Amino acid sequence: MRTEHFTFTTDGDQLVGTLYLPQGTPLGAVVTTGPLTSVKEQAAGAYARAMAERGFAALAFDHRTFGESDGLPRQFENPLGKARDIQHAVTALLADERTTDLPITAVGVCAGAGYMARAVADDPRIRAFVGVAGYYADTAAAPPSQEAIARGRAAEQVWRETGVAEQIPAVAPDGGDVGMPLREAYEYYGTPRGAVPNYTNGFAVQSFAYTSDFDTIEAAARLAAPYAMIHSENALAPAFARKFYATVSSPKSELWLESVGQIDFYDDPRLIDAAADAAAALFRSVSAG
């Protein structure tokens, strides 16, 4: 397995990724996306590496406004924008001599599973999809906070008028006014465990106008590609995961693992290996077909 630099553009912004390549001819090409505010050296990269170890070319990349990629305002979390990034990544993989003509499949982790669901529902070029510890936002079961949406819209108005984007921390040891209030999130992003040099502990406040009312169930209803759900009773919102899974009508399978919580899916080799094995089995079946 080796890694190579990979770049592509979305709406004029250059996005920077790492392409993980297996020994020999790849069985297919996998595009990965990770959790809220994350970068390619974190969960997305861990799963891309695992897929390359199983014979696939796999791309982990920094979404617009994050890490090494272009885009303003920085640290802006936009689910539909990230779904568009994924579609542009697919276009780039199909055009690149290292991956052209390979079947394209996808892995999304945490919030990235919801973003990936939207991308897959909208893009028939993605032949199969695996969601790992997915956070499947369900606005019917958990209506969005109108206060958060209003705060996000106000921050965006200020940014458009002044070019100044308000940021809050993505995580903090005691929670508070942050993008991710879970203590578990701080223990990953706020410590050497997950705080890689390319990561910025920041969250653009205007993101609330986009993340708060993002819904994944509508995408579940439109999925045509085979889907595998990998989750845990201790991961985020297992009830939402079950509803998402029940809504999918395409060929599907589920694997429930034992985890401490949500975050160990990002870096626990036992969980990553089990999830990657399941993904590889699904993706091989697609490649063979």
Rank of each mutant, 00 (worst) to 15 (best):
A117Y: 03
F6H: 11
G194E: 07
Y199H: 10
D122K: 11
A150T: 13
R54W: 14
T100Q: 13
A235P: 10
T32M: 11
E166P: 04
R222C: 10
R118P: 07
Y266A: 06
L15I: 13
W159D: 05
Q262L: 08
F244G: 00
A246R: 07
Y245R: 00
C110Q: 07
G261W: 02
R222F: 03
F6N: 13
V164N: 05
H88L: 05
D215H: 06
G131K: 02
V130T: 07
A235W: 11
D213G: 08
Q14M: 09
E53S: 01
L72S: 12
T25R: 13
G24R: 02
D11Q: 15
F208I: 03
A224H: 14
R125S: 12
L282W: 04
V109R: 05
K82Y: 09
T247C: 03
R118G: 03
A154P: 01
G67H: 03
I149Y: 02
Q157H: 08
T65A: 14
L282F: 06
Q146M: 13
G194V: 06
I263F: 14
A237P: 00
V196N: 03
F283R: 07
V109N: 06
A48T: 13
T91C: 00
T32F: 01
H5Q: 14
S207F: 03
Q206F: 01
L36V: 00
D177Q: 05
A119H: 07
G45C: 11
G28K: 01
K82W: 12
F8W: 09
R54I: 14
L271P: 04
E184V: 06
D267G: 01
E147Y: 03
Q87D: 10
T37E: 12
Y199F: 13
P238D: 09
G12V: 04
H63P: 06
V16K: 11
A111K: 02
R222K: 15
A29W: 03
E68W: 02
G34M: 05
T100A: 14
Q87Y: 02
R125A: 11
E147G: 10
R193F: 04
A224V: 10
D96S: 09
D273Q: 06
V286A: 10
A48V: 13
G179E: 10
K252Y: 04
L80H: 15
G55Y: 00
A219I: 00
